[in-house]
Design a protein around this nucleic acid. Structure first.
Lengths: 128, 128
DNA sequence: TTGCAATATTCGATCTTCCGTATATTCTAA
DNA sequence: TTAGAATATACGGAAGATCGAATATTGCAA
C-alpha cells in the first residue's frame, strides 16, 4: 500500500486542510464548542442544545469522527462524544482560541444555556 | 439596513466558520503560510513558490481578501499581500500554531525553499 | 500611442457539500 | 419476543466550491 488507509479514524495526523474543512460548518463548530467546554456529551444533549434534527447532528458527528477530531464511546443506549485523544497540538490550540473568543456570543452562548437547562440528561449529569 | 454590508473587506470580525472555510484549501493555506513566515509577498512570488497558475493564485487571494484574512497594497506593477491588520486574535493564534507545526513538512517546506531561490524578486528582496 | 508585464476576472463544467426525509440499527426493558 | 428509545445510514436534490482556459484590466516604458 502506498498511502495510509484513510478509511476510519487513523492514527496519522489529519492534514490541516481537512481539519479546517471540518471546522468550516456552523453545526460542527457548535458541537465542538460544547464538547470543548463541557467534556463528553451524548448525541441527544447536542440535539437538544443546538435545536437541530438528530440525523443532522449525527451526520456531522460522523464527519468529525472520520476527520479525527472526536472519539465516541457507547454506554447503554447512549453514544458519548469527546475530543480525540490524539488531537494535534495546533488543533487543540485552535479550538481553545476560537472557543475562548466566541463562547459568550451567539449562537454558542445560547447552545450552552440550553444544555444547562436540559432536563433528564444521561449519566446523571446535572445543570451546572 | 439590518445586516452589515458584507460586500468588501468589512471592519466587522468574520465569522469563525468563514475563516475556517478560507483555510480549508491547500492553495490558500500555502499562500498564508508563506505570508506568515515572510511578511508581505506579491502575487508573482506566490505563483513561483507554489508552482501554480497565476489565475488560480489570484482567485484564491481574492477569497482570502474578501474573508478579511489578508490586505493588499499596489506598488507599481506589483500587488503585495500581507496579513490583515484587523485579524482577530484567535485567527492569528491559529495561523501561528498551524504554521509552526507544519512549516518543515511538505508542501510548505518546498514552497519556502522555492521562494528563497527565486531570482529577480520585486522590491529588491533577496534570498535570505 | 503602442506594447508588454503583472494581475484580475469571466465562463462553463465538474465535483463536493449539505439538507430533509425515510429507514435501518442497536440496545434495553417489559 | 416485542416495543420503544437513541443513534446511524441511505437516498436524491439543491446549492456551493474549484478548476482550466480565455479574456480583461492596470501600470509603465519606449
Amino acid at each position: 500500500m502506498s498511502a495510509p488507509a484513510a478509511t476510519e479514524h487513523s492514527a496519522v495526523a489529519p492534514a490541516p486542510e481537512a481539519v479546517f474543512q471540518a471546522l468550516a460548518d456552523s453545526t460542527r463548530l457548535r458541537c465542538l464548542a460544547l464538547i470543548v467546554t463541557h467534556g463528553e456529551l451524548c448525541v441527544c444533549e447536542l440535539v437538544h442544545a443546538l435545536e437541530l434534527s438528530q440525523p443532522k447532528i449525527s451526520r456531522h458527528l460522523k464527519l468529525l469522527r472520520e476527520t479525527g477530531l472526536v472519539a465516541d464511546r457507547r454506554e447503554r443506549i447512549w453514544v458519548h462524544y469527546r475530543l480525540a485523544d490524539t488531537l494535534p497540538f495546533w488543533t487543540r490550540t485552535t479550538l481553545d482560541a476560537v472557543v475562548a473568543e466566541h463562547a459568550d456570543s451567539p449562537p454558542f452562548a445560547d447552545d450552552a444555556r440550553r444544555l444547562a437547562h436540559m432536563a433528564d440528561r444521561p449519566d446523571g449529569r446535572c445543570s451546572n
